[in-house]
Design a protein around this nucleic acid. Structure first.
Lengths: 364, 364
DNA sequence: GCGTGTTCGGCAAGCACTTTCCAGGACGGG
DNA sequence: CCCGTCCTGGAAAGTGCTTGCCGAACACGC
């Protein structure tokens, strides 16, 4: 071990004296110490460092020098309390490991990093109670902004609670934005799930497919519902019987996709094309199909939704509906942080484009 | 739009009166209001809510009721200031989109969520200056703990600065832990990069390979160096000439892997086996090789390092060296948060196991 | 019945900052 | 030359919460 202050009984006194007098005392350096060293009042020191009022040159220089020498870092919490405004932004996702959410997170962070704010990240693991709890946490930290992605439930009670919690959040001075279908009385980035799935269905029909199976998420998940609905609409557009599709519901995860695909095969796969309502489920399905000896796209075509980055490494390349996830995150951050606090909630629709790749092929 | 407080001029007075009197005033609910409503002093209200001293029953109940009615949420920042200790934990990674880091983040968050702490996430995008800056930010927020993953440089100057910054962080009362080879005077979770790569090389030799190419990261990246070194050692162990391997340096990313693999092919691929020093590079290489018409593993074997989750969906399944990323994150969090503040820096070594899969095959 | 604890409200002094307000000096115009 | 204005430093009053200390009230043992 190179450095081990825990076992060194005491530092040699003058050892780091010429070293600009780094932190030698216990605890953080306080503004009052900076002020004392510069021979000015606390107020002046504060003003120099926050730059919120001009300070005469002799003082200004001395304060800056003192702060540098002492390696002063302001206490952000105290600043937030005194100013009545913090610089933290909350970000609520379901799971960091899910590429859908990490892409969104990346977009949010990109936006936030440019503004010298800081991100509180919390993952709900799809638990509505945790979601509520975390909104409260963010309020408690007086977050300036809050981005919630994919509160994806149709549960009436939970939605009400969440709206109420968000009102509380707003009352505490924060601005929220949601990435989801159900705008909760706040700004919202709403992906065109239904329209995208509809377009996808049409494309698949044009490839000659007539027998479809859909691997969907839990019934109460709004995004899943919308995608199924849109898909059916697209089938109808092309004169395909929308009621003829098998829809299986499972978890909105890779494991969910795996399991549903297995069930599908076990039940005797009749469809020529499988639509998994999101990409992680599609990946699970792909893996299960492979395991079952069903070839994609030779035996069955497969399509997903979202266009997560992982798809780039998959063989066959998956047909999907592209959502600009990072942009969505950045946009949500923008809505929450840059919009006029008094402005009414805005909804930004996000176009979802079909990307045909190798996993779907024309039926001859 | 269902709810639009921005355009409603004023709420009807008694409208949500029976509603437990939600937040109707401007700004957050203060403790003083709770105390007033309960008819007790500020001190008593504080004590009831923080539970740090017993309070007699008549008061206790009234305070709790008042807090509930008013939907009181304590101001975490003010609490932190008053208590002199915050409940935030900083997490520094390079990039959320990289599965290596998101896995670690997941582990950290799992650990942190159980303790009712909150995570500040910052991504450095591999920029040393940002890294320093964010450590300062965390110090400024008086984070109780800080986890830095993969400060992966051998740059002397930067290391010194970082150590100093971390000392400042510690002086401000925080505890840090690092996931990396260079423990910076703090607790460290150190993956066995060298030993893992060495074992890998041995396995590959045993498969009959003799001609190797290594796709490495930038020369100053410690993890990359160690893995190359270990790999060479493994070759030597098996009587293979360690100097005979081609080592190409590029970026530590997917794009880096793609580019290096292309170069390799362009230069006339002579190796029978390619080792990419991490999995994302291996994925890039796989993609480039495919594009160039080089089959894996038929024309060349390919191995990576880390065992990121994305590998599960790749064909052929990649041989790699497994690192328990989530556990590493959790462990780092534990070191930073649960260890005795006075204890000397501990280093926890993490075993790295070879996982042979389809991308490497025996040379007959 | 009295000393000795123990329990528990409330006052007020923090915590580390910001910002308002005041006052003194400089400056300029009439 | 005087008054109004501008500039700027400092004292002090905030910001929302915690907590040390005091003392009242009550219980207990003898």
């Amino acid at each position: 071990m190179t450095i081990d202050p825990g076992t060194i009984p005491s530092r040699k006194p003058g050892e780091d004296a010429e070293d600009g007098e780094g932190a030698r005392r216990d605890g953080p350096v306080l503004l009052s110490e900076v002020a004392a060293r510069a021979g000015v009042s606390l107020a002046t020191a504060s003003r120099v460092l926050s730059g919120r009022r001009s300070v005469g040159e002799p003082y200004r220089g001395r304060v800056l020098a003192a702060a540098r020498d002492l390696r002063y870092t302001p206490n952000a919490q105290a600043q937030a309390v005194a100013r009545g405004a913090s610089n933290v932004v909350g970000l609520l996702i379901h799971d960091v490991l899910d590429p859908y959410f990490s892409s969104i997170a990346s977009g949010v962070m990109r936006h936030v990093e440019e503004r010298d704010l800081v991100v509180f990240l919390a993952s709900t693991h799809s638990d509505p109670d945790r979601e509520l709890e975390y909104v409260a946490t963010m309020r408690s930290h007086r977050a300036r902004g809050l981005i919630i992605c994919g509160s994806r439930t149709t549960d009436r009670l939970h939605t009400e609670r969440l709206v109420k919690e968000l009102e509380g959040f707003r009352a505490a001075g924060g601005r929220a934005a949601v990435i989801s279908q159900n705008r909760l009385g706040t700004h919202a980035v709403v992906p065109q799930n239904r329209a995208g799935a509809r377009r996808l269905a049409r494309e698949l029909c044009r490839l000659g497919h007539r027998q479809f199976a859909v691997l969907a998420g839990p019934v109460h998940v709004l995004a899943s519902r919308d995608r199924v609905t849109g898909f059916r609409e697209g089938l109808a557009d092309e004169g395909c019987d929308p009621e003829g599709v098998t829809v299986l519901h499972g978890r909105f995860t890779r494991e969910g996709g795996e399991q549903l695909a297995s069930e599908l095969v076990a039940a005797g796969l009749r469809a020529t094309c499988v639509f998994a309502v999101n990409d992680v489920m599609a990946l699970g399905a792909l893996s299960a199909l492979r395991r079952e000896g069903v070839r994609v796209p030779d035996d069955v075509s497969l399509a997903g939704f979202d266009d997560i980055t992982t798809l780039r490494d998959v063989v066959p390349a998956l047909t999907t509906v592209r959502l600009p996830l990072e942009e969505m995150g950045a946009r949500a951050a923008q809505l929450a942080l840059d919009s006029d606090p008094a402005s009414p909630p805005r909804a930004v629709k996000v176009h979802a484009d079909v990307v045909l790749r190798e996993s779907t092929r024309p039926l001859v």
